[in-house]
């Protein structure tokens, strides 16, 4: 069994375990942590499939933004956890982080990857090849995806935005309407005591 196959089986075991833990754990914070681990492991598996760009994209954008947003919402929605339950969170978070570091080292530090192993091709790296088809052949779909993202942003903001009564912020419409009589009072400093 080659090193790649060994790596595949190890990553697959971690991925499936994390996925099962995600859907079975009662505690939602731990479930979200397991989901992060599952996504990271999947990213490493994509690296084995020579999809470097998507793999890095999954780690940076998806885990870095979407799943952390997920974690925020979970922590916001979940009821207050008693103090004695907090230490295991730290433990499981440390476990997830350690597993991710180990996977990174195993995949990126191995001899099977790197400049020596790069497949010589006419288009260059995976990112270049993807860009070459993405902006030409799939340009329309790319623009449609951008519009879909924009609509999602607007929708998410419109759903969660709420007006609060007592908020200290600038109101330009009131500021430009202010007149001198409202804001300015001239005194000579002697007839009236300073307030």
């Amino acid at each position: 069994m080659g090193f790649q196959a060994l790596l595949f089986y190890a990553l697959a075991a971690v991925l499936l375990t994390a996925a099962v833990a995600t859907v079975t754990l009662r505690c939602m914070v731990r479930a979200a942590l397991c989901l992060i681990l599952a996504f990271f492991t999947a990213a490493m598996l994509w690296m084995l499939l020579h999809a470097e760009f998507l793999s890095i994209l999954l780690v940076l954008v998806y885990i870095g933004a979407v799943l952390v947003l997920f974690l925020f919402v979970v922590m916001m929605v979940e009821r207050e956890t008693p103090a004695e339950q907090r230490a295991p969170f730290r433990l499981s978070a440390a476990l997830v982080a350690l597993l991710m570091i180990a996977e990174l080292l195993a995949v990126l530090g191995s001899e099977d990857f790197g400049p020596a192993q790069e497949v010589p091709s006419t288009i260059g790296s995976n990112t270049q090849a993807l860009g070459a088809v993405l902006y030409t052949e799939y340009a329309l779909a790319f623009e449609a995806a951008a519009v879909a993202l924009l609509i999602a942003i607007v929708g998410a903001i419109a759903l969660t935005l709420r007006e609060r009564g007592e908020q200290h912020r600038q109101k330009p419409s009131e500021q430009t309407q202010a007149s001198k009589q409202e804001r300015l009072r001239l005194t000579d400093g002697r007839t009236e005591p300073p307030c």
């Binding site: 933004a65 979407v66 993202l149 999602a152 929708g155 998410a156 903001i157 759903l159």
Partner: peptide, 9 residues
Amino acid sequence: ASEIAVGLA
């Protein structure tokens, strides 16, 4: 990503 953003909202 957009689905999850709207879902979480």
